[in-house]
Computed example of a mutant assay.
Amino acid sequence: MLWYQIVFLAVIQGLTEFLPISSSAHLILPAQLLDWQDQGLAFDVAVHVGTLTAIVGYFRKDIAQIIVAWCVSIKDRRSTPDSRLAWWIVIATIPACVAGLLLGGFIETHLRSLEVIAYTTIGFGVLLWLSDLYGKTTKTEQDFGWKSVLCIGFAQALALIPGTSRSGITMTAARFLGFTRESAARFSFLLSIPLILAAGGLKTVELVSSNVLVDWTSIVMGVVLSAISAYLCIYLFLKWLNKIGFFPFFVYRLMLGGVLLLIVYL
């Protein structure tokens, strides 16, 4: 990979992992428009490490409190807001894990087309906007219960379909359930940690068991750039979310989906 390809792909991955605009749609465009080769397994591992570093670094205090509270709740059977949040994250992660195990092969074979990504980018973008337009803003993280958490978890499982956007669909579900923008975004970000860790772990196992030669310069650049871009993305998104809402992301997804459809049909 050339240096500008590394920079572009690492930054795009860092941004789109957490913005509700679909990382798969963005990572497929360079190959289609610029005839770039696939970035390879080692680089995928690198950007997963980078985005995981960013999310853990940003929420480090919250994560520490949640883990401690969760361990105490298991040991002493004492419930606190932090321990409940830990359990909600665990419960909401289960549907995506089960769906990945059962349907991962089918999705990989039949749903990774540019046409599917174009329509899901547009369709789930519309749902994102409607959830923000009509969803009530009455609930915070203290109002999560097992029903709402399972709804968000099943929504997250839909993100296995390319173009959906994991962060987008989980925030959409939370907004339809009446949660504030900030609560929806924060829970979505925390919920990403187990899946990024699992995806990165699987790719690492694949990399170790393969005979791929690793370009360590590309790897280091990928980790650093994806971590920096993801951290800035999280910070700015949470800072501006209440001011701008989800409408700009809806418009952007419509434009992106339109470009993809032009590529498909022209």
Rank of each mutant, 00 (worst) to 15 (best):
E182C: 09
Y252S: 06
D38P: 12
Q37I: 07
A46M: 13
S23Q: 03
G178D: 13
G200P: 00
Q13P: 09
T172L: 03
V72S: 14
I91P: 10
A54Q: 00
L207R: 03
L19K: 00
Q142N: 15
G123Q: 01
L254V: 13
L15K: 12
V45N: 01
V223E: 11
L27W: 00
S183A: 14
I219S: 05
C97E: 04
L260Y: 03
R175L: 15
L158N: 02
G200H: 04
T164S: 07
L241Q: 10
T80A: 08
Q156K: 00
P81K: 01
G168Q: 05
L160W: 04
R186Y: 09
F189Y: 13
F179W: 08
L225P: 01
A198E: 04
I107K: 05
D44N: 15
A227D: 09
L241S: 14
L207F: 07
F247D: 07
I89N: 02
F176R: 12
W129T: 10
V259G: 07
S183M: 08
G57Q: 07
L261H: 02
G125M: 02
S113N: 09
L197I: 01
E141L: 09
P20H: 14
L238Y: 09
S24R: 03
L195N: 11
W3G: 06
T170S: 03
V205T: 10
L85N: 00
L262K: 15
Q39N: 05
Y134I: 11
Q13G: 10
L102Y: 06
V116Q: 01
Y231E: 08
S218K: 11
I122F: 12
F247C: 06
S183D: 12
A227N: 04
L2Q: 15
A64P: 07
R77Y: 14
V45K: 11
I21R: 10
P30M: 07
L9Q: 12
R112G: 10
F189G: 11
V98F: 11
E141H: 12
W36E: 10
L41V: 08
S209E: 13
K75F: 14
F247Q: 14
S183V: 02
I228Y: 10
V259N: 06
G125K: 01
L127D: 07
A10V: 01
W3C: 04
L127M: 07
A159N: 01
Y4C: 13
L213D: 11
G201D: 13
S183K: 07
A198I: 09
F189W: 04
R60F: 15
A159K: 02
F237Q: 02
V7H: 01
L232K: 06
W36I: 08
V212E: 15
L130N: 08
S183G: 06
K75V: 14
V47G: 09
G222W: 05
N242E: 13
L52H: 06
G145N: 09
Q32P: 06
A96R: 10
V72Y: 08
A230K: 04
L15A: 13
F249K: 09
I107H: 05
L102M: 12
A10E: 00
V68M: 03
L241G: 04
F247T: 15
V56D: 11
I244D: 11
A184G: 11
A64R: 06
T53L: 10
A118V: 06
F59I: 00
E115W: 08
